[in-house]
Simulated scan of single mutants.
Amino acid sequence: MNTTDTPLSDAAQRLRDIHSRMDKAARLVDRAPGQARLIAVSKTFGPEAIEPLLEAGQRLFGENRVQEAQGKWPALKENYPDVELHLVGQLQSNKAEDAVELFDAIHSVDRSSLVQALAKAMDKTGKRPSCFIQVNIGEEEQKGGVALEALPALLEEAQSLNLPVVGLMCVPPADKEPSPYFGLLAKLAKRHGLPRLSMGMSSDFETAVSLGATEIRVGTALFGTR
């Protein structure tokens, strides 16, 4: 950033650059630009870092923790009521009601106890954020997500409780080429009739867009290193 740049112009440029890369990735596979939505992952960043992106027109944001989001987004949304807020991190079952109250979408539904808690919270509050089932696509012990073989049963349970499941989400192994994992997630979503795919982050979102992502989750490329 040169000395004439302002935080707003810098944020706007970062947004333009990422959208340009998304559009190029889409065109390379004859996919219409604009079919993938950009979620700006603002975890650990305060209002002073978020507001330039809001001023530049960004309206989809992602947070990892319910408590952190509760501390900054209610005030921000007073000035930007059209913000769409997504929970992209792991969710404890005892935070389900708080999450349902605050978020428009929850990307990390991955177990029966959470499905039950979310269904109860939605019935209580009357709010129904969109839900993505997180799949442990690389079968990694340390990561959240439902096991591949357990996905059909979890989907059936969620749908039986009228959870608004709209798609699947994954985080591929960090040290491997992501395309086979994104391709597998797309195949699973198609098999189960789910239209949306939450996949792709700062390092691999172009690959994700080329393989059908409808939501990409970008933090570092927009906000810088944490």
Rank of each mutant, 00 (worst) to 15 (best):
V83P: 07
N64W: 03
E51C: 00
L60E: 09
I50D: 06
K95M: 09
G46Y: 00
L54R: 01
V83W: 08
A99L: 12
I106L: 06
V115P: 02
R65Q: 10
P47E: 01
N79T: 11
Q90W: 05
K77L: 03
L85S: 06
L102P: 02
E63C: 10
P52W: 05
H86S: 02
Q116L: 15
F61L: 07
E84H: 00
E78D: 04
V83T: 14
K72G: 02
G89E: 14
E51A: 00
Q67P: 01
L85Q: 02
E101S: 10
S113N: 13
S113K: 15
Q67E: 13
E55W: 00
G89T: 07
G89D: 10
Q70V: 07
G62Y: 10
E78F: 02
L102H: 12
L54V: 01
D110W: 08
Q67I: 10
L114Q: 11
I50T: 07
Q67R: 14
S108R: 13
H107L: 15
Q92M: 07
L54A: 04
G89L: 02
V88A: 11
E68K: 03
K95D: 04
G71Y: 09
A49E: 06
K77T: 07
H86C: 06
G71P: 05
E68P: 01
S113H: 15
L60C: 10
E63Q: 03
A69H: 04
Q90E: 12
R65M: 04
V109G: 13
A121P: 07
S93M: 05
V66C: 11
E48Y: 01
G62A: 03
Q116A: 14
N64V: 00
N94H: 12
V115C: 15
A121M: 08
K120L: 14
A99T: 12
D98R: 15
R59Y: 12
V109E: 15
E101Q: 10
A99N: 09
S113W: 08
N94R: 05
A119P: 05
D110A: 15
L118S: 09
E48D: 09
E68R: 01
I50G: 02
P81F: 13
